[in-house]
Amino acid sequence: MMSESGVRIDKYLWAVRLFKTRSIAAEACKKGKVMISGMPVKSSRLIKVGDEIDIRIPPIVRRFKVLDVAEKRMGAKLTPDFVRDITPPDQIELLELSKLASNANRARGLGRPTKKDRRDLERLQEGEWDF
């Protein structure tokens, strides 16, 4: 725990488990997906308590408030003491809708055939199909 000074944003995002690895967090910064005050930040940017971090995860932008800074990775149960998710409800709703839409848009027949499909095909090929 380092309350007095700042911490690199890539290290912080990894420590509070917003990214699986520090290199993935650094890559997100490099690609402009991590922003503070609407401006993309470099992975070396120091953050401090009170900063609000926006992370663009298509199709939405997640927003987090820094409650305390940390350099070392912590257990998932400890993260609420260091970061708070302040993503607007409309963004969360948009994410839920996009998940539902992606499941509903899978057209029947795409992917591998089911066992029933395979049996029907075999019956059709063997001439046992009832019209």
Rank of each mutant, 00 (worst) to 15 (best):
S102Q: 08
E128W: 11
L121P: 03
L97A: 14
L95K: 15
G50W: 00
A70E: 13
N103E: 10
T79M: 02
G50S: 02
P59W: 05
D120P: 00
D117Y: 01
G75I: 11
V69A: 06
R123D: 13
L78E: 14
R112E: 03
E128N: 10
A70C: 14
E71D: 07
R56V: 15
G50K: 03
L110N: 05
R62L: 13
L94V: 11
G50H: 00
G127M: 10
R119P: 13
E93S: 11
D117Q: 11
K116M: 00
E71M: 07
D68F: 03
D117S: 06
R56M: 08
K99M: 10
R123H: 13
E52Y: 00
R63M: 07
R123G: 04
I60H: 01
P89N: 09
E93H: 07
D90S: 14
I53H: 06
I60Y: 02
E96V: 13
G75Q: 11
G75P: 07
P80R: 00
E96I: 10
K115W: 00
F64T: 14
P59H: 09
K72I: 07
T79R: 02
L110Q: 11
I92K: 14
S98H: 10
R62P: 00
A101I: 08
R119A: 09
L78W: 08
M74Y: 01
A70N: 12
R106P: 00
E52V: 13
R118W: 02
K99N: 08
P59R: 07
V83S: 06
R108L: 04
L67Y: 03
R63A: 05
V69W: 06
D117G: 02
N105E: 13
L97E: 15
I92T: 13
I60M: 04
V83E: 06
W129A: 14
N105I: 08
A104C: 01
K65C: 06
R56Q: 10
L110Y: 05
D90R: 10
F64C: 13
E96Y: 07
R112Y: 00
